[in-house]
Each structure stands twice: as structure tokens, then as C-alpha cells.
Simulated scan of single mutants.
Amino acid sequence: MKKKFTLAILFCGIIIPLFAETSPTVSLGFHVLAGGRYDDLRMCIASPAGVKGGPIMDIYADIRFDLDDHQAISINIPVMRPILFGAAFQMLQFEPQISYEYSFDQNNEDGGQWVVGGGMGTVFHYGPDYKSSPDDRGDSFFAMGPLFTGFTGYRLKEGPRGSWMPGVKVFYAPLFSRDYDPATMLGGGLELHYLPKN
């Protein structure tokens, strides 16, 4: 746990000076994630009881701060899963994060850019464990833990309203609950970002 806390401090130590030394341009975008995860704690609504993990999908609202032509910071707020799970299943799965992106020089042939990045956030959970199913639920409980992510993608040439960026994301989170032993969430998926024109 101390190692994860140290990583969080180092991450803040990198991010805060970037904001202090620039006047970022702010824009609003969104992105979609679809993939799968291993999760030996939380129930997956799309998997049978006893299965550790399953498919995932979410839509994020992105508040983007462009620091310069190559660097950006984004606040990524999940929208779809918190609303769907809360309304339909009386559950909470909320995983906001702050991410950093670095864009390489434009490709002279198509005007696109390779992008790499990573982020940190927090996983919040309220609901039953993986031994449950939507039709056979166990007791609900709270759990949370730090979230670590990595991303790479290719930003397509900007159009009159903005640009699209397909990519691949990986993520890991240790999960902690008063009622259970420490657990692990690990997975990845495909992403599609919409980046509005500044």
C-alpha cells in the first residue's frame, strides 16, 4: 500500500508543475471503452455466478486540458455504467481518473499522430461479489482501490469539428473491502476518443 501511495505522490508531482507552467486550453470530449476484465471480487452483470470477471463497456465524459502541441491532461468521468448500474441493478461501479497524454509529431502522409499515455484514479464499488448474479444476489458491500491505466492510440487528422482517436487501454486496480480479502481487477479493451477542435 505504501508503494501505491508513493506512486500517487510522484504522479501528482509530475502533473501539478505542468499546470503551473502553462495556460492550458480547455475542451470537452468523450470516449467509449469496450473490453474485458478479470475481477476476483465484484459481480459482473454479464457473467454467470462464480465467474471472476467478464465483458466491460463504458462511456466517459472528458475534460481536456491541452498544455501544448504535444501534452495534455484529461479528467475522465464514467457516465454509462454508474447510471445503468444504479438504475437497473442498485449497484455502484464508478472509476474516474486523471490521465496524461503525449502526442508525437504529425505523420506527414496522413496528418495523424501516435499518442501514448497513462493515468491514475480510484475504483468505487457497492454491490454483491462475483459469486452472485442479477437473479441470485448476495449481500452488497463497499470496496475501493487505486486505479492505474496505460493507453496508446492514433489520432486521426483533425477535421472541421475535431478528430477521432482509436486506441488500446490496459488497467489494473487492487481492491480493498472491510468484508473481504484484498482483490485484483485487471483488464483491457479498445477505446475510441472524440477530441473537439480547439
Rank of each mutant, 00 (worst) to 15 (best):
A49M: 10
R81S: 15
A49T: 03
S99L: 14
Y100R: 02
D58S: 07
F89R: 07
K52V: 01
H70V: 00
M57E: 15
D66K: 12
I77N: 12
L92S: 03
Y102T: 02
E101L: 02
I59N: 12
L84W: 08
G86Q: 11
P48Q: 04
D69P: 13
N76C: 04
K52P: 08
P82S: 06
Y102G: 02
Q93R: 09
I77M: 15
L84K: 05
G50R: 12
M57H: 11
I59V: 15
I63P: 02
P48N: 03
L67N: 02
F94H: 07
S99W: 14
A46M: 12
I73R: 00
Q71E: 11
I56C: 09
D62T: 13
S74D: 07
M80S: 10
G53S: 14
I63H: 00
E101K: 02
M91G: 10
Q93V: 13
P96C: 12
S47C: 08
Q71K: 14
M91K: 07
Q93H: 14
R64F: 04
V79M: 13
F94P: 04
P96L: 06
G86D: 08
P78I: 02
D69A: 14
I73S: 04
D68L: 01
L84V: 10
G54D: 06
A49V: 07
D69V: 02
F65P: 01
I77H: 10
D62F: 12
P48C: 02
Q71G: 11
A61W: 07
Q90D: 13
P96G: 09
Y100A: 03
A72C: 05
I73T: 00
R64C: 12
L92V: 10
R81F: 07
R64W: 04
I59D: 13
K52E: 14
M57T: 11
P96N: 08
D69C: 03
L92A: 01
H70N: 03
E101R: 02
L67F: 03
Q97L: 04
I75D: 01
S74T: 12
K52T: 06
S99Y: 15
A61S: 15
Q71L: 13
I56H: 01
V51L: 01
G53D: 06
Q93N: 12
Y100N: 08
P55T: 07
G54L: 04
L84A: 15
Y60L: 15
G50L: 12
P96D: 13
I73V: 04
Q93D: 12
V79Q: 04
S74I: 13
S74R: 07
P48V: 06
R81D: 15
D62A: 15
H70S: 10
E95T: 15
R81V: 09
D62V: 13
I59A: 14
F85N: 05
R81T: 15
F94V: 05
P78F: 02
R64H: 07
P82D: 08
Q90V: 05
I56V: 10
M57V: 09
D69L: 04
G54N: 08
G53F: 11
L84M: 09
A61K: 10
I59K: 10
I59L: 14
